[in-house]
């Protein structure tokens, strides 16, 4: 089974985000990055499928130079090679634009399975994977928690709301978006890290994908991103100040006498 895993790098959880003066986005140069959580689970899913059924795992990522670190990590864990789209000349938070570029990189590979995390921890639209399926003409299931290989396709467990699940059968090739927690993510071994250095990383520019600047121009899909800002607080928490003992005493008083909850 040839599997392509779409991975994105996002700011490390709990990063202190500072918004640019022109509100165009956050200051990215001061941040540290990690593999988006559900994409990380997607990679682990791909590696397990390969171990069980054979084949190849190819990482696909897009971003500035820094994302090569995510590729290195993925290859060290056992992916066979990587496709890297250098987007130095464009960045978009429009899922339709990003899916267009990713689809152009995936199509010539003709994979059996495309995996992506269900949503990113930065933009979080949760759309790119599903749009990608439509662009590639593949059947898909989102929010997948388990995968079984069948003779003529796959059977997947999809998460529904409030603790319910559903089994769905799909033919291959197909696309799945993976939910965090589907498995336990492995660590890279020293041997894996050494081997990763010899693995192929193919760098692709927009022109290599048959796309031009006009294809990725901001607003070209009708989605006009305007600005980011810190949300207005609808409710102001009373932040209790002092050393741990002080704040604990204050809180216990408030809960007993003001809120009357115990």
């Amino acid at each position: 089974m040839k599997i392509i895993v779409c991975m994105k790098q996002v700011p490390v959880k709990d990063s202190l985000l500072k918004i640019k003066d022109d509100n165009s986005w956050v200051h990215e140069d001061e941040l540290n990055y990690e593999i988006n959580e559900s994409d990380h689970y997607a990679l682990e899913t791909a590696l397990r499928l390969k171990e069980a059924h054979g084949g190849e795992v190819v990482i696909l990522t897009m971003g500035p130079e820094r994302v090569k670190e995510a590729i290195k990590q993925g290859l060290a864990k056992g992916a066979d090679r990587a496709l890297y789209i250098n987007n130095a000349d464009f960045t978009s938070i429009d899922p339709m634009t990003n899916a267009k570029v990713l689809a152009a990189a995936i199509s010539p590979e003709t994979p059996d399975l495309v995996l992506a995390g269900l949503q990113t921890d930065d933009n979080g639209s949760g759309q790119t994977g599903v749009i990608l399926a439509e662009n590639l003409g593949l059947p898909h299931t989102s929010i997948v928690m388990e995968i079984e290989k069948l003779d003529n396709g796959i059977k997947v467990k999809r998460e529904l709301e409030s603790g319910w699940f559903q089994w769905i059968e799909l033919p291959l090739p197909a696309l799945l978006t993976i939910q965090s927690g589907i498995n336990q993510i492995r660590y890279a071994t020293i041997k894996g890290i050494m081997m990763a250095k010899k693995k192929e990383v193919k760098e692709l520019a927009l022109s290599d994908l048959g796309l031009s600047g006009a294809d990725v121009a901001a607003g070209s899909t009708g989605l006009d991103f305007q600005k980011v800002y810190v949300p207005e607080k609808t409710k102001q928490a009373l932040i209790l100040e002092g050393d741990p003992k002080d704040v604990a005493e204050q809180l216990a008083d408030k809960l007993k006498n003001e809120a009357k909850v115990f």
Binding site: G222, L223, D224, F225, Q226, K227, V228, Y229
Partner: peptide, 8 residues
């Protein structure tokens, strides 16, 4: 963070 979008 909140983000604003218009549709064109």
């Amino acid at each position: 963070i909140d983000a604003d979008f218009a549709l064109q």
